[in-house]
Design a protein around this nucleic acid. Structure first.
Lengths: 354, 354
DNA sequence: CCATGCGGGACTTTTTTAGACCCATTTTTA
DNA sequence: TAAAAATGGGTCTAAAAAAGTCCCGCATGG
């Protein structure tokens, strides 16, 4: 409270502080993730003039935070320390801390962590979310547990940012789904393997194409190996997953226009593991055959880490991750603020209904 | 510690923060003590251009901290709140908090409070010191006690800044000395009366010219009234006093050149109540007759509040107020930093002696 | 071995800032 | 009560700072 008070006063007597602080924080953060990086590249990234950027760089270099060399700009050790140390203060200044508290109430989950920035405007935000989620993930690990991970860019970012180093013994990493989409880096299988490698843990793969006909699926499911892995997935104690937007994911899974229409009519907005959720968080559709398996998962798991960002995913996040007491959400500022807007709107709606 | 850490990081990522903060703090503080005050007067005060100052004023007005009216500039309620609330943060930023801790060790007193700024450059500092000391003074008051105050500009400032309002019952305010100097506002008598009025307490006056011959003094001392007051002074539980520079005060008390030379030869650097102290804090001279009385005072008193500022008073402060466990010092930044310098020098001297 | 991207420097244009007034009004002073 | 001083606001101009746009020599990586 005392800190909040001072922060407020500080903003009034030095109103240029937030702007300066955020600007430089974003610069340092970008360099952190992209070093070594050139002056012009940075300028283009921030849509600012070269001279303007150079001034900032010079200033931060004079402060000993940046190192400017022939090969490009990178952070000094102090710069690295600062970027991590100042994040909580910045979040408080930007109102993200109070945003987190509000979302905690609205979404009724275990934890909400909001990363500054918007995924849609700034690619670095994804990495930052990945880093935050990776940290949480490590906290959740205990010996002899199964960790299930989903696919997608968000989980890929977590794998990227996960620190290398041994995890508790006996951990196994499994993909929560089969193959999906074309980009190999975002496949659950690949991500599971990469996470396992970082953790120096074992992993299993699920060799199952995702969009399979009903009959074919029934046959494949009789395969012992696949049955075994599916059982492993279902007994996972930690679950890491992203969130899909319903219609996009349906299209991505080669659903027919009728099927998509059907889903939309049922109010599907969010998707995860091939399960489709409506705004109230109810399952209104699923990939045939696997649906039941995966619906069970939520009942036995201990920790669920959800990583998602971008304003356009807000509805899906509420639908998929809301009202689940075991969920820990890692969001970006864009999604977080949008969720608050939606909640405000629906609250207004309720008010109007009376 | 956490706060210190953040402060440090904040200074590195926004190095212009201290400058901005201090500049505006000083502006607000000046307005606080001088409102309503005009733009040009302020500009002249800060030795800055009119336009520069106007920009700052506009900014602070937009922040709702200043009110700009035909009659002049004054603080809004928020502005008043801010000026008082931000002081501890500012002190920490300027390193005054750590300065206070160092002085506490060096001077071995009960408390050291350092006010930002230098008395010699900025007249407002005196008022700020007065306000700080007045606050401490009120904390020290208990029913039925005697409060003794000395003369001088510092104590006058305390009287000025003392809030109006009742004190614990039965308090009596007495001047610690008789008349001294020409300026009526700085007489101990007048200050005692003003303090008493603010506290809604009773007061007594000491009708005794300070520079009296030895024989005349002996006669006057037989006066019952005077004896009574002198006894009251000696049984004071709270003592508020400033600090004089030895040679200046000697001259002020109409000492002959020989007497002054004698004092200087004895190493006198500081003065209070007509007692002269050398650098080690020993009494090396006094106004005839009253010396013993006043030397006793320090032995029975509970709280001693010392107010002094300006670099040139540093030696005197160390001499008079150092090494007294009951003393609470209110200093300005100028004096405080100079004291630290002196301590460093003498420490170096000791080092060289080995 | 060359092409790309790097930091640093220089030059010009644009924008911002700062200084020096004057004005109508209010407040203080004589 | 009248004169004098001080108030905020406005404006014009000079100065300075900022920003945009190049070019250069160099290292690095394909």
């Amino acid at each position: 409270m005392m800190l909040e008070l001072q922060k407020d006063y500080l903003k009034r007597i030095v109103p240029e502080l937030p702007e300066l602080l955020v600007k430089r924080y974003l610069l340092l953060r970008k360099v952190y993730y992209s070093a070594p990086i050139g002056r012009r590249t940075l300028a283009a990234y921030f849509h600012s003039g070269e001279k303007v950027l150079r001034k900032e760089v010079d200033l931060l270099r004079e402060q000993g935070l940046l190192r400017v060399e022939k090969r490009g700009i990178s952070l000094t050790q102090s710069g690295i320390d600062l970027v991590t140390a100042i994040t909580p203060y910045l979040k408080s200044l930007l109102g993200l801390t109070s945003l987190e508290e509000k979302l905690l109430e609205i979404l009724k989950v275990k934890r909400v962590l909001v990363v500054p920035g918007n995924l849609e405007d700034d690619e670095v935000v994804l990495l930052e979310m990945g880093r935050a989620a990776a940290k949480i993930l490590r906290e959740c690990l205990t010996p002899e547990m199964i960790l299930a991970v989903s696919g997608g860019t968000s989980c890929a970012a977590v794998a990227d940012m996960l620190s290398e180093g041994p995890a508790p013994p006996g951990i196994e990493v499994v993909p929560a789904r089969g193959g999906l989409g074309e980009v190999v880096d975002y496949q659950a299988n690949i991500i599971a393997a990469r996470v396992a490698k970082k953790l120096r843990a074992r992993y299993r793969l699920l060799h199952l194409p995702d969009s399979l006909g009903e009959e074919a699926l029934q046959i494949v499911l009789k395969n012992e190996k696949i049955k075994e892995i599916l059982e492993m997935i279902n007994s996972a104690k930690v679950l890491l997953h992203g969130i899909g937007i319903a219609d996009e994911m349906a299209r991505c899974r080669n659903a027919t226009p009728e099927e998509i229409k059907k889903l939309v009519n049922k109010g599907a907005v969010g998707e995860v593991f091939g399960l489709f959720f409506n705004a109230k968080g109810e399952v209104v559709g699923s990939i045939p055959g696997l649906g039941l398996y995966l619906d069970d998962l939520n009942k036995h798991v201990h920790h669920v880490i959800v990583v998602a960002g971008g304003r356009r995913k807000a509805e899906a996040i509420v639908a998929v991750a809301g009202n689940r007491a075991r969920n820990q959400l890692v969001l970006d500022e864009g999604a977080a603020r949008r969720i608050l807007e939606i909640a405000g709107e629906s609250a207004t709606d309720e008010y109007l209904e009376r």
